[in-house]
Computed example of a mutant assay.
Amino acid sequence: MSVEIDITGLRRESIAVVPSPLAELGMALHGLAEPGHHPGLRGWATAVTAGLDCHLADRMCEADFLWRTTFSDLFLPCAGLPGRDTLPGATLTEDLDLLDKLDDEQFVNAALEFTCALPYITPGSDALSDEGVRRRALELAAARGPQQLRFSERLLADPPRIRAWLRQFLQDCDEAFFADIWSRLRHQLTADSRHKTDLLRHKGLAEALTSVSSAVTLDEAGDRIVVDKLGNGRTTTGDGSLLLVPTSLGWPHLMVLHRYGWQPVLHYPVGSPEPTALPSVEQLTLRMAALAHPVRMRMCRNLARSAFTTGELAQTHGMTAPEISRHLSALKKAGLLTTRRRGRYVLHQLDVTAVARLGSDFLEGILR
């Protein structure tokens, strides 16, 4: 499973690494709505929430579906503009001006991304012009609660009014809490952008992508970027460009904007505790499957305490050596065993560090 970006024919000068204040505000709102996704932000989220004006807090709940799941493509409006080569604004006001340039159809479809089964990677009908899609959008909104239904009804009935509401809300968030944190984060994001741009210029795209995340790779032909994620998607730069946007608040999310007709964007975390060898989705699947088998679970009880030979495990579990070997092979293939030789014997032991990380690896994998 992965999201792929076809970059055939893309020139190096058409790749930009630029921070976006609006995207970072989107991540800030997400961190406030889902602090469980971001343990490192809990202290900040608690302090901001405690100091919020009650009216702003109520407004924050009105449209939280735009940023609770992850965050809507509306927070990267530059990607939706004609030409597919627009950069994010240098200030929040400039980014909001770009948001105003999206047409109503783009705005509504992006806003309904998480509540309506609209096509994402292919062209299709939209909720403003197709009555069937509109009904479906409202049915799905109703399933999420009356507040979301009311907002969706207002959105479909009067997009300009909701656009004005959203802009004012984001400006109020900036005044209430975001301007302070952005003044501290933008220097780190600018420095990271310079570093990635230097890597791109002097060592090439593959090296720059590796520095973004070990989950991002360039294929051997150099015409396809593959992002290892628990999901599938495909997009192309076409005649446009590729945009890399760093975030200080986003870890563990590594997001790919691959909406049809929009500029592809890699939105990646900086300063994250990501290990140098981030397990792939395939590795996570192997590890979960290996540990789920009842016999291997019982074997792990022994292997976590000490090193055992195949013969010792066979005797302990009342099984044949070939049966034990097959189970050991599954654990080893999943990267959960260490082995060492002692004379003519091979000793196996559970890699408790790898198993201990599995919970956080799994969480990071599904949130990636």
Rank of each mutant, 00 (worst) to 15 (best):
Met1Ser: 08
Glu4Leu: 10
Arg11Phe: 11
Arg11Pro: 01
Arg12Gly: 07
Ala16His: 12
Val17Ala: 01
Leu22Met: 01
Ala23Tyr: 02
Gly26Met: 09
His30Gly: 08
Gly36Gln: 08
Leu41Trp: 02
Gly43Ser: 08
Val48Ala: 03
Leu52Met: 08
Asp53Asn: 12
Leu56Val: 10
Asp58Tyr: 10
Asp58Pro: 06
Leu66Pro: 12
Trp67Leu: 11
Thr69His: 13
Leu76Met: 10
Gly80Glu: 07
Leu81Trp: 10
Leu81Gly: 11
Pro82Arg: 01
Gly89Cys: 13
Asp95Val: 12
Leu99Gln: 08
Asp100His: 12
Gln106Val: 03
Ala111Ile: 04
Ala111Cys: 06
Phe114Cys: 00
Ala117Trp: 01
Tyr120Arg: 13
Ile121Cys: 14
Ala127Pro: 02
Ala127Asp: 11
Ala127Lys: 00
Asp130Lys: 05
Leu138Gln: 00
Leu140Asp: 01
Ala141Asp: 04
Ala141Asn: 02
Ser152His: 06
Glu153Met: 04
Leu156Gln: 03
Leu156Pro: 06
Arg161Met: 14
Ile162Leu: 13
Ile162Lys: 02
Ile162Gly: 09
Arg163His: 08
Arg163Asn: 08
Leu170Trp: 13
Ala176Ser: 15
Phe178Ile: 10
Ser183His: 15
Thr190Val: 08
Ser193Cys: 06
Arg201Leu: 09
Leu205Asn: 06
Ser213Gly: 11
Leu218Gln: 05
Glu220Asp: 07
Glu220Arg: 04
Arg224Gly: 09
Val227Asp: 03
Gly233His: 14
Gly233Arg: 13
Thr235Gln: 02
Val245Thr: 03
Val245Ile: 02
Leu249Trp: 06
Leu257Thr: 05
Gly261Gln: 10
Pro264Leu: 14
Glu274Ile: 03
Leu278Arg: 15
Val281Asn: 00
Val281Ile: 02
Glu282Trp: 14
Glu282Leu: 15
Glu282Lys: 14
Glu282Pro: 11
Gln283Cys: 13
Met288Ala: 09
Leu291Pro: 07
Val295His: 11
Val295Tyr: 06
Met297Pro: 04
Met299Lys: 05
Gly311Ile: 11
Thr316Gln: 15
Thr316Gly: 10
Thr316Trp: 13
Ala321Phe: 10
Ser325Leu: 15
Arg326Gln: 14
Leu328Arg: 00
Lys333Pro: 01
Arg340Leu: 04
Gly343Gln: 07
Arg344Lys: 09
Leu347Ser: 06
Arg357Leu: 00
Gly359Val: 05
Phe362Asn: 01
Leu363Arg: 06
Ile366Ala: 11
Leu367Gln: 09
